[in-house]
Amino acid sequence: MWDNEIVRMLVVEGIVPTLYMTVTSTLFAYVLGLPVGILLVVTAKSGLKPNAFIYKILDFVVNILRSIPFLILLIMAIPLTKFIVGKSYGPTATIVPLVIAAAPFVARMVESSLLEVDKGVIEAAQSMGANLWQIIWKVLLAEARTSLIVGATIALGTILGYSAMAGVVGGGGLGDIAIRYGYYRYETGIMIVTVILLVILMQILQLIGTWLSKKLDKRITG
């Protein structure tokens, strides 16, 4: 059964769409989640520009989206997906619910990374006359760099897992193959192979993330 046809399918219909969904969704999730995370930190009570109104709204929206189980979100998002992509199945369509699920998660990751930045350093930047944007770019994001990369790695891993779940609604990728062959056709062999491929992808992502965060961290002596 392990002819070229199956290998081709695992790569072209499995690995490639899975990576495409994971990476694209993570990018979009950061496009939305990063500003929200920054806003949460800046508008918090102890933040640089406290604003209870904005903070409470963002906090509430993030919590709501975070509490919807992904499988339900997949189905709930179908009308929106159809509106944006034009269809509700396939890898590109899956990106929509993936972004909705991942963006609030990313926002929280960014928030917690930025909160780790030493308040004293922020105060020092203020004492030098830095404005809000300079503090966000040059202090908060720059000093939290390592933690942000670790967070991004976790986000990538989580989204990789979610993307496989989207196979249930014909989302494409490795998860889709696992469900079609393993669940509907009882071809356990192929299902196991897709799981192994997912494990390998996760390992590679984690290795790259850890390596990058360590390489860029200047707090380690020597």
Partner: peptide, 30 residues
């Protein structure tokens, strides 16, 4: 006005991800 009132701190408050030279460049960058 703050650029004319420099401040140093008990815990130094240097940017840990920047080299010594870049730390000193920081206020000029601003």
């Amino acid at each position: 006005a703050r650029t004319e009132i420099a401040m140093i701190f008990q815990h130094f408050n240097l940017l840990m991800q920047r080299s010594v030279l870049d730390n000193i460049c920081f206020p000029m960058e601003i």
